[in-house]
């Protein structure tokens, strides 16, 4: 349950619009951070790691509605700044292929980016605690903890969608005299609550049961976490054996740019 598989038009406008705004702000910040370094080093590595995630996400394990993500490995290889951009790119391509909604693209970017950054941080922490020969274990542990955290984040988002006070904000504005969210569009289309089923009880749309959603997610999720952790551990173990420099010597993304210019690249105009 790495990213939200909630269709368009289910979450309230204020929630997914906030997700979009926050995701775009983070992507812009990450892109600005990247400008200081070399673009032509970063674009190819960003593209191939995003493509690897797409390859993984395109294979679904149907009975438990789970697909591989490889977000932790991608996070380890890309580092935090590029992870945010990779998460956005992957979600854009998936949305175009009908996998994952367009409106929830912002929230999905945030969840995937959180997964990549948390995975990267936990892997580095566990690698320091355990010996480097236990890279597979470190990656496996990091994956399980990361997926547990992001699944909780997902449940939190669904719970937020239930908050009737919050749904008022999608059409309202803060009234400074009362410090409450009022509705400045008392008449017209906004009054009808077109975009929020919770505010239109006449249409008979009941709220989502968060406890039931959490029960299903937490009972199916661990199977997926275990599969993902095993595969991540095996791949990281394999990479640690054949190309350990990719995991610890700053990773390919870092080596390709951050701070120092790679040998042979004089950045001259051709």
């Amino acid at each position: 349950m790495s990213h939200i598989h909630i269709p368009d038009g289910v979450l309230p406008l204020w929630l997914w619009a906030s997700g979009w705004a926050l995701a775009l702000a983070l992507v812009a910040l990450a892109s600005l951070a990247g400008r200081r370094h070399e673009l032509r080093r970063r674009v190819p590595i960003l593209a191939v790691i995003s493509a690897i995630m797409l390859v993984a996400m395109s294979s679904e394990i149907v009975p438990i509605a789970y697909h591989m993500n490889l977000t932790v490995i991608a996070g380890i290889l890309l580092g935090p700044a590029l992870s945010i951009i990779a998460a956005f790119i992957v979600e854009v391509v998936l949305a175009l292929l009908g996998h994952g909604g367009v409106t929830v693209l912002g929230l999905n970017t945030l969840i995937i980016a959180a997964e990549m950054i948390l995975g990267w941080a936990l892997f580095n922490a566990f690698s320091r605690l355990l010996a480097r020969r236990a890279a597979g274990w470190a990656a496996g542990l990091a994956t399980v903890l990361t997926l547990l955290t992001t699944t909780t984040l997902l449940v939190g988002i669904v719970a937020l969608a239930q908050n009737p006070a919050a749904t008022l904000r999608e059409t309202g504005a803060l009234d400074p005299s009362t410090l409450r969210f009022g509705n400045p569009f008392a008449e017209g289309a906004f009054r009808l609550g077109l975009l929020s089923p919770e505010e239109a009880p006449a249409t008979g749309v009941p709220p989502i049961s968060v406890s039931r959603f959490a029960a299903v997610v937490y009972s199916l999720g661990p199977i997926g976490w275990l599969i993902e952790a095993l595969i991540t551990a095996a791949i990281v173990g394999f990479v640690a054996r054949v190309r350990p420099g990719l995991l610890w010597q700053n990773g390919p993304a870092a080596k390709m740019s951050f701070g120092r210019r790679p040998a042979g690249d004089e950045a001259a105009r051709h």
Binding site: S31, R35, L39, A47, V48, A51, I85
Partner: peptide
């Protein structure tokens, strides 16, 4: 970086 990486991805 986003636009170019999208194309290359």
């Amino acid at each position: 970086i986003v636009g170019d990486a999208l194309l290359m991805t």
